[in-house]
Amino acid sequence: MTAETALVPAAPAASPARPLITLDGVTVRFGRGTAAVQALAETSLTVAAGDFIALVGPSGCGKSTILRLVSDLMRPSSGRVLVAGREAGDAAAAEPVRIGMAYQNATLLPWLTIRQNVMLPLKIVPPFRAEWRRKRRTEYRDRADALLAQVGLKGFGDKYPWQLSGGMMQRANLCRALIHDPTLLLLDEPFGALDQFTREELWAVMQELWATRGTTVLLVTHDLREAAYLANRICVMSARPGRILEDCPVDFPRPRPLDLTFAPDFTALVQRLRALIVAARAAAA
């Protein structure tokens, strides 16, 4: 464990003056005519820099779609998506916001070692890219090893993905998403495929990574305890077409111990979220 001071959040929860992400009346439709699917209906959301937001909601309500909008993998049908004040995918942006992304499926490249996998973004993202040849055996390598050590994978750098368990691969996946010091970290059900114990271990790892780096995190999850344990704010979404039903602040002090998940306040919060989602699903049916 690193020094206690490191566990204090790097950026205070809300600084609404400087939103990193703004979704303004965003709608998303897939397809045309009768086959059209409306995935998002008039969704608005603001995320402050340095914040940790969880998106929860019934499956198919458009959570992943929001992540895809923010990372400019797709455009909204109407409304605006702003990242750091600029329309996502603004080609004129001199230095676009660096984004890291991790999915439930770790998608590590099987022909590379864990260290090489973690270093991959440094080979691609500027400004690291320019010095890839010169620093990949020294500075970048140390950087990857330090990050691996922080998530509990010290000494696994030379292993190949298939030599690791699912939990270890997911740790490496987090490292790959963070190695290039992204301003924004997008996580789409990253711990969804793990068993309960491994998942809780990774919550602690995630909390520490967030605290030490000050990265803004947008976490999509279907695990309400995960959302309540990790996030500063939980946005509950309605069934499709999705929109944000409720925005719950989560005020538990940090660093949060795992025991917190058994505290009455915590359980009450989880119950309340659960009731909201059950109601949202019932309304849709």
Binding site: S71, D72, I99, A102, Y103, N105, T107, L109, P121
Partner: peptide
């Protein structure tokens, strides 16, 4: 894998 392509595109590869 489509997820891997998304990861790469997000890095603006």
């Amino acid at each position: 894998e489509p997820e891997l392509e998304d990861v790469m595109k997000t890095l603006r590869a």
